[in-house]
Amino acid sequence: MDDLVQWAVAGERDAFDEIVRRTHRDAYGLALRLTSDEEDARDVVQDAYLRAYRSLDRFRGDARFSTWLYRIVANCAATTTGKRRRHRHDELPDEALMVDARPENDPAAQAAVGDLRQQVDDAIRELPPRLRSVVVLRDVYDLPHDAIAEELGISVSAAKVRLHRARRRLRERVFPLPGEARHAI
């Protein structure tokens, strides 16, 4: 991948095409999680690759290419969600999830892990976009706080506050404590 990036930076269009082939699934996954909309995610990914291609000469190689690309996707997604200002509130299935934390004690544990992942994914989708962005970029894609703040156009402290709130809401949604109502986020 490093070689491909170097060739692409040097102007080899075929190398960039190969980078697209290898990375567009991950980029789309991030865009979909940020926008919660398939069509928006497609637009975001196309826009992101175009921006990446146009600014390849600014890629300094001190970060991983995937991190650099994720930042561009995050920026494009922020623009898109900012324009649309959509806020979906679909009801989630109202069923409690009980997962044994020790897989060896639960024959259905592997399936439950998949269910849990799906439930967390659903809960992320239900978050308001401003909270969703930070938790996806920080906790799923491991971007640093300063990069998240820069791409979303907010301060680092604001990004941390949003992250804090997002995690709390996810925890309340996925692992409600006794007495905590399970509600749509």
Partner: peptide, 24 residues
């Protein structure tokens, strides 16, 4: 557990329309 699941989502594939690569 929540953090572990969140981290694992990055490697969890989402269905991608085969026309997307071509469009890009």
């Amino acid at each position: 557990r929540l953090r572990r699941v969140l981290r694992s989502l990055a490697d969890s594939p989402v269905p991608v329309d085969p026309t997307l690569e071509h469009e890009i």
